[in-house]
């Protein structure tokens, strides 16, 4: 079924291969220029009326961000994920808050946590979760949260960390027998 849809859409849009995860869940790469037309068609013609999720992945090695638009067709119980790639050096996405008002919230989050700009999205430049944040966006993979916390907050003496596997093995089998 997803394959039929993919074949049908492929005639008019530049689509990547269909990556099927389950019978009713699949992902496909799309071009940024096609994204909006595709979203509208999926919503209005093919019944994918619900935007479940808009999120990003930082592919730092490839120098790009991936935006994932997860669309759900409730009546047919199908989910389709559209993947769009943006240049990591200058990440600018296209706002879709006029298609789904909830997208504005996701876009605000992506702006704050990944530093992806969505020009025209309502209140996108306001603080969302963080307050008074001056460092780089914390969800980027070159932001090291452990190093940041060590440089910001002080430790208390005496904290130990155990590897659960070796710790329990030593506790349960002190002589080393299995």
């Amino acid at each position: 079924m997803m394959r039929d849809l993919h074949d049908h859409l492929k005639t008019r849009y530049r689509l990547g291969d269909l990556a099927e995860r389950r019978g009713n869940l699949a992902f496909v790469d799309v071009e940024r220029a096609d994204l909006r037309a595709l979203l509208v068609e999926l919503r209005d013609v093919h019944g994918f009326t619900h935007l479940s999720l808009l999120t990003a992945v930082d592919w730092i090695e490839e120098g790009r961000f991936q935006l994932t638009y997860l669309m759900n067709n409730r009546a047919a119980n199908r989910t389709l994920g559209l993947r769009v790639f943006l240049d990591r050096a200058d990440p600018v996405g296209d706002t879709i808050h006029d298609l789904w008002p909830t997208a504005a919230t996701y876009q605000r989050e992506l702006r704050e946590m990944f530093g992806i700009a969505f020009p025209g999205s309502p209140r996108v430049d306001e603080e969302f979760i963080l307050e008074g944040w001056t460092d780089m966006p914390p969800y980027r993979r070159d932001f090291d949260t452990l190093a940041y916390s060590q440089q910001t907050f002080s430790d208390r003496e005496g904290r130990e960390t155990h590897d659960p596997r070796s710790h329990m093995a030593k506790k349960l089998y002190p002589e080393g027998q299995r």
Binding site: D135, P138, Y148, S149, F153, S154, D155, R156, R159
Partner: peptide, 12 residues
């Protein structure tokens, strides 16, 4: 303990 956004020692 490794979060960028939560404090570690309240008594500071």
């Amino acid at each position: 303990w490794d979060s960028y956004n939560t404090i570690k020692r309240l008594d500071d």
